[in-house]
């Protein structure tokens, strides 16, 4: 292919746009790079158009990540080497920053595989999903952890036990079976004990909610391994308030606890304040309720988490509130006469 064409300069613009696009994705791009990019854009409307074209296909590719990833797997002659020994977490601080930058780019699900820790190394890893993004992690034992936005957990893969601590987080755990190394999660003042199962665990504002999709999970007070356990099984939900009682229910609606993993939130009469907190974790612009009155409104419905303005419009349609944009976020206010 000859690089230049007189008509519209299309090929050259496309090539340069691709070079800029890749260079500017790097954290190493500095003020000088962005200024040079600005000069390039200003040089020709073709440049602006070529760059926009790349952005639009970049976004379009996200429409079906599973389908595309599957296709790429089929086409590639053999699967890519997936062992990222040490990379993902060699420097947790750095990793966290990368996660933070990703948060800007909506809630695209990314998978990061955590390497097998060398024998004897038993340090604690921090897994994090910044506000605005969800993250999937695969531990060395095959356990999958899908972290909801605005969550942080600590993981320690010990020889005798696999331990997770969560103070403010929500995650779906698909725990690999390993009878000799129980999977123990300290969630607020409860300890959740797992052998091999899949469940969603939410620990927010002193309230815990556990929903089991497969297997059996035991819950007892944290730090009291001899205390009698509550067993939670498929389709059951355990709700517990810090320092208070636990309530076990089986209402046949347990699937809704997993809805966030497919980009939805399902509510049945939850206070609007809780909905606002969930949205603040999922999107770039924080959402809050104007006052206690608005916060206590009960909200029911399925919210598809495609983009924040659309979600806010749907909330306005399904609850007697208006969403008002302020300098520091969005405020949900009860509609007059609503």
């Amino acid at each position: 292919m000859n690089g230049k064409r007189t008509f519209g300069g299309g090929d050259q613009a496309a090539e340069e746009a691709a070079r800029w696009f890749v260079r500017l994705q790097s954290e190493a791009a500095d003020a000088g790079d962005w200024q040079a990019f600005e000069a390039w854009l200003a040089a020709s409307p073709d440049h602006v158009a070529a760059y926009e074209h790349l952005e639009s296909l970049w976004v379009d590719l996200e429409a079906a990540p599973q389908v595309i990833a599957h296709r790429l797997d089929q086409v590639a002659l053999r699967p890519a080497p997936r062992r990222t020994r040490g990379i993902a977490l060699r420097n947790p601080g750095r990793r966290a920053w990368i996660a933070g930058a990703g948060a800007i780019a909506a809630s695209l699900v990314v998978a990061v595989e955590i390497a097998n820790r060398p024998a004897g190394v038993d340090d604690t890893l921090t897994l994090r999903a910044a506000p605005g993004e969800t993250r999937q992690y695969v531990l060395a034992d095959g356990t999958r952890i899908n972290l909801n936005a605005g969550s942080e957990i600590q993981v320690r893969m010990g020889r005798d036990a696999r331990r997770v601590t969560m103070a403010d987080a929500e995650a779906v755990f698909d725990v690999a079976h390993d009878a000799r190394r129980p999977f123990l999660i300290t969630s607020g003042d409860r300890e959740v004990r797992v052998v091999g199962t899949m469940f969603n665990l939410r620990q927010r504002d002193g309230k815990m909610a556990l929903t089991v999709r497969r297997g059996i999970v035991e819950v007892r007070p944290a730090g009291a391994p001899q205390a009698p356990a509550t067993r939670v099984t498929v389709g059951q939900q355990l709700a517990h308030s810090q320092g208070g009682e636990s309530v076990l229910t089986a209402d046949g609606l347990s699937d809704s606890a997993f809805a966030w993993t497919t980009g939805q939130l399902v509510y049945r009469g939850q206070p609007l304040g809780e909905v606002a907190a969930d949205l603040s974790r999922r999107f770039a612009t924080p959402v809050r309720t104007a006052d206690a009155d608005a916060a206590s409104l009960r909200f029911s419905g399925v919210l598809v988490l495609d983009n924040e303005p659309a979600v806010l419009r749907r909330i306005e349609a399904f609850a007697p509130v208006t969403a008002v944009r302020a300098a520091d976020g969005v405020i949900l206010r009860r509609r007059a006469g609503g």
């Binding site: 500017l24 954290e27 190493a28 791009a29 500095d30 003020a31 790079d33 962005w34 601080g93 750095r94 966290a96 920053w97 933070g100 930058a101 800007i104 910044a130």
Partner: peptide, 15 residues
């Protein structure tokens, strides 16, 4: 977070 930002100006443009 207080990220350890390599290029703060670049960060603003990227954001």
């Amino acid at each position: 977070d207080t990220p350890d930002i390599q290029n703060p100006v670049g960060y603003l443009y990227r954001l």
